[in-house]
Each structure stands twice: as structure tokens, then as C-alpha cells.
Simulated scan of single mutants.
Amino acid sequence: MRIKPVGGSGDIRIGKSSFINSGTVIFGGNGVDIGEHVLIAPNCTLAPTNHAFSDRETSIREQGFLPSKGGIIIEDDVWIGANCVLLDGAVLRKGCIIGAGSLVRGEVEAYSIQSGNPLAKMGMRGER
């Protein structure tokens, strides 16, 4: 796991008994809040920041960053599969599961199982 303080001044908080696997990169950006008992599989990217790009006459690198969409919030007992990307404004509610290779941009319902790009609900934890 690597932590990079890029794109803002947000804090990174990791709750007790959470596990972040190898190859995962967390950018500080607008902040990342990881709850307790969270599992993050290998090679995920948590990027709570957005480059500005509206001025064609200025390089993207020189334009800096857009205002925050709230950072990234991961509540307790969440499982994030391998190779997922979480962007600024992602809110993963308690107990949800994110399938491998997914892109998360907004709010994910508690205890839901979601996967893909675009993210789609596949079911709910505890359903048969």
C-alpha cells in the first residue's frame, strides 16, 4: 500500500481492524475516511481529487484541482474487490460489497452488492 499526499489537504483515517492489501494507492486529496473492519483487496486506487481542465490555453498540470466533492467515505464492514477505483465523492455505506474492477463515483447503498462501470446493483447481502 502507498499513501500519496496529492491534490488537496485532506486527512486519511483508517479504522481499527481494517485491512488494505498490496498494490493499493490512497491519495490524500480531499480526504479518505475508512471505517472499521473494512477489507480492500489488491491494486485499488482511492483518488479523492479532480484535476481542473476547462482552460484549453493552460496545461492540465498547471490548472490545479477542482473543488472537493466531499472526499471518499467508506463506512464499517465494507469489502472492496481487487482493482477498484474510488473517486472524489464516493460514499460506501455500511456493509456494502464492491465487485472487482469497479468504478465508484457516488453513494453506494448499505449492504448492497454492486459491480461494474457503470456501477450496478447485483443484490443485497443476506438475500438468497
Rank of each mutant, 00 (worst) to 15 (best):
R2G: 15
R2Q: 15
I3A: 07
P5I: 05
P5G: 07
P5S: 11
V6D: 07
V6H: 07
G7E: 09
G7V: 02
G8M: 00
G8V: 06
G8L: 06
S9W: 12
G10V: 03
G10N: 03
G10F: 04
D11T: 14
I12S: 02
I12G: 02
I12Q: 00
R13M: 10
I14S: 01
G15K: 08
K16H: 14
K16S: 09
S17A: 12
S17Q: 15
S18Y: 05
N21Q: 10
S22L: 13
G23L: 01
T24C: 13
T24D: 10
V25W: 11
F27W: 12
G29C: 06
N30W: 01
V32C: 10
V32L: 00
V32M: 01
D33H: 11
I34Q: 01
E36S: 04
E36F: 11
H37P: 02
H37I: 05
V38S: 00
V38P: 01
L39P: 07
A41F: 03
N43D: 14
N43A: 14
N43Y: 05
N43F: 15
N43H: 07
N43Q: 15
T45R: 13
L46P: 11
L46G: 10
L46F: 09
T49F: 15
N50L: 14
N50M: 14
A52T: 08
A52F: 08
F53M: 13
F53E: 06
S54Q: 13
D55W: 10
E57F: 09
T58R: 12
S59Q: 06
E62I: 06
Q63F: 10
Q63D: 02
G64F: 02
F65G: 06
L66Q: 14
L66R: 13
G71F: 04
G71N: 08
I72E: 03
I72S: 12
I72T: 06
I74A: 01
E75F: 02
E75C: 11
D77E: 09
D77H: 11
V78N: 01
W79N: 04
I80H: 02
I80L: 08
G81S: 04
G81P: 10
N83G: 07
N83I: 10
C84Q: 11
C84P: 07
L86P: 08
L86S: 07
D88V: 09
D88P: 04
D88W: 00
G89P: 12
R93D: 00
R93K: 09
G95F: 07
C96K: 01
G99H: 11
A100H: 11
A100D: 13
V104Y: 00
V104G: 05
R105C: 10
G106L: 05
V108N: 00
A110R: 08
I113E: 00
I113R: 09
I113C: 07
Q114R: 13
Q114S: 14
S115H: 07
S115F: 03
S115G: 10
G116T: 03
G116Q: 05
N117I: 09
P118Y: 02
L119M: 05
K121T: 12
M122S: 11
G123C: 04
G123D: 08
G123W: 14
G123K: 13
R125A: 04
R125H: 03
R125E: 01
R125T: 06
R125W: 04
R125M: 01
R125F: 05
G126Y: 01
R128F: 07
